[in-house]
Write a protein that binds this DNA or RNA. Sequence first.
DNA 1: TTCTAATAGGATAATTTTGTCCGATTTAAA
DNA 2: TTTAAATCGGACAAAATTATCCTATTAGAA
Lengths: 144, 144
Amino acid sequence: MFSKACEYGLRAATYIALQSLDGRRVSLKEIADKIDSPIAFTAKILQLLSKNNIVESVKGAHGGFEITRTKMDKLKLSEIVNAIDGDSIYAGCGLGLKECNANKPCPVHSKFVDIRNDLREMLENTSLYEMTAGLEVGLTFLKR
Amino acid sequence: MFSKACEYGLRAATYIALQSLDGRRVSLKEIADKIDSPIAFTAKILQLLSKNNIVESVKGAHGGFEITRTKMDKLKLSEIVNAIDGDSIYAGCGLGLKECNANKPCPVHSKFVDIRNDLREMLENTSLYEMTAGLEVGLTFLKR
DNA sequence: TTCTAATAGGATAATTTTGTCCGATTTAAA
DNA sequence: TTTAAATCGGACAAAATTATCCTATTAGAA
Ligand code: FES
Ligand code: FES
């Protein structure tokens, strides 16, 4: 569904948000450890998220990653997915035609658009803050 | 969503079904041309579909690929997807945890399972025969 | 000021996916 | 029986994705 990069990105952003709620800035090392991701690859993804103004990075000693409460409230998962995977999930044809186009649809188009729209709406309506809800109380997890 | 191999496989199977409706066995060359796919790669995928009893292949001169009417009626898209991409679409976690597990869910699990189930149901309820419906009358397309 | 802990970023490597090539095999038709 | 048209299957190649390594840069703290 999503690329590995995108999966790591979503998990990383969620962990950063969770810790930022407690005012804790987190290091790359801690993030990779807590979401069980390859550390150097995760660094690249966080650079990308930082450039896209999704998380804030602070260099130097006592540096790390954080995200403000207002930001995580406004920020939707779709923005993270978009920054990493682009719009292929929303725009791509299920059978791989160059573009999904209702005027020249593939045989699965009519059935496929609904599912894709549900996914899009889910991502556009879910904030990063919502993602942290179950984590503190141990109802949801970022690694296993 | 699906791998390239799977996209080609679905398009190829659909084209074979369409031509089989007219009793026409089709060659690899014709298939690749009509669905706009790399010919040698498509050959590999058709071998796989043939081994999985999804299409029938006939070797030698006047050979090619075909699928019986009864078969294309019974055959669901899920079987094609499964043969090529496995069950990752149905079983995989949206955030990339090793397995999707409702007892230890990731933060998107509850929202994600519905979408994934819709996709699964769509694939399990759509027959290959249905795929051919719009093609003859030019309502749907396998390439663009 | 100097040291140390941290991210930034470029180069590179490994792996997976996608794609090609070619000879072997099969079968119908000349 | 020979030939030609077709799939099969193994080896190989290219491209994309995933992942690592190393140096530079930054900034807090001693
Ligand atoms: S054209 Fe294929 S999904 Fe829209
Ligand atoms: S655990 Fe992540 S989708 Fe089910």
